[in-house]
Amino acid sequence: MTVIDVHSHYVPRGWPNLACATGGGSDWPWLRIESERDATIMMGSAEFRRIRRTSWDAEARLADMDADGVDVQVVSPTPVFFSYSRPGAQAAKAARIFNDLALDICAPAPERFVPFCQVPLQDPDAACTELDRCLAAGHRGVEIGNHVGDHDLDHEGIVTFLQHCAQVGAPVFVHPWDMPSSPRLNRWMAQWLTGMPAETHLSVLALILGGVFDRVPDTLRLCFAHGGGSFPFWVGRMDNAWHGRPDLIATSEHPPSHYLDRFSVDSVVFTETALRLLVDTFGPERVLLGSDYPYPLGERPAGKVVREAGFLSEAERARVLGGNAAEFLRQATPTSSAPDKPT
């Protein structure tokens, strides 16, 4: 059995000055190097996150993977690099820089690292172009944020990009990011503890009630990070609302529970009870091992809850630990054709 972790992130050990490389702007991310092992992601003059060499060092990552019993790791961008608030041309240049650096990080062990790219999602044509370039260069899929400003995943431009992903067979990993800020949410990392689950929930709902799943081919491979957020717990409430207030909510062809086989979720939910909810809700074929490595809110050892879950059969455990991810990651087909427009 090959164990595959679909949710990990990278940070390069430095990158060009993005204001110079992309044509201007302020408060771009940069890396303050503190030692051979430690650094801090900076946003302008503000500290964003302290990191260790596991973010960029293949040898260190492989050692942790071996310790955790992980054979293959999907390596995705850290969402702070997305640059969705910038002009599309600038975000495209930034994406190209980080995507090329991701290939360098993964190059020492191509049989164990699966690079996912980022794209300028605010510009669908540029996003499709960068995805095609990356697939041809060796990336295997794409990570996107769950929204672009006030545009959720049912926005026409984002749907155009998702249709292109379906066309070329590129798997899409959706990660929550850019959570709302307020005095109530700025304590105790509440943006991460409550905002992230809510962001993911809202974006899954947008795909459903926004009619995206009714329009986009079912060949689209989507996986949502962090167990799908709060969505799995509230499927019954959403179905009840769909039937009870059809004047406001029945904007999709079917109630929300009908679409549970259109996407997958990762397993990084930390308790057997929560994992059972995912399996009961989506089925064992729709839950993929994820860890959020190398960040401190991730699961270590990766896959611990899945391996110890008493309710899983051995066949189900094997699916969650690797079989489902292998299907999710099956090879995309690069293409230079123009993306289809939403219908």
Rank of each mutant, 00 (worst) to 15 (best):
S313R: 06
E199V: 02
T194H: 10
L202V: 15
R262F: 07
R276A: 11
R317A: 07
V212P: 02
A326N: 08
L207P: 02
E308P: 04
H258L: 13
G310D: 12
S252H: 12
R286K: 15
P256Q: 06
G323K: 00
K304S: 14
V265Q: 04
G244E: 05
A198P: 05
F224D: 01
F282Y: 12
K304D: 15
T273F: 07
A274H: 10
A325P: 04
G244H: 09
R286S: 13
Y295K: 00
S230L: 08
F270H: 14
G236C: 12
F224E: 03
G310T: 13
R300G: 05
E299T: 08
I249A: 15
R245F: 07
R330K: 15
R245Q: 09
I249C: 09
F213P: 02
R215W: 06
G323A: 10
E327R: 08
D280P: 01
P284R: 06
L248H: 15
E285M: 06
A309L: 15
V268A: 05
L321P: 03
H226C: 10
G227T: 09
R317L: 11
R300L: 11
E272F: 02
M238L: 12
E327A: 12
V279F: 00
A315R: 13
L288T: 03
R307F: 07
L209M: 14
Y259K: 04
A325N: 04
H258E: 13
T281Q: 04
R307I: 12
V204M: 07
P246G: 12
P255Q: 15
P255T: 11
F263E: 03
G236E: 10
R307H: 11
L312I: 08
T271C: 04
A318G: 15
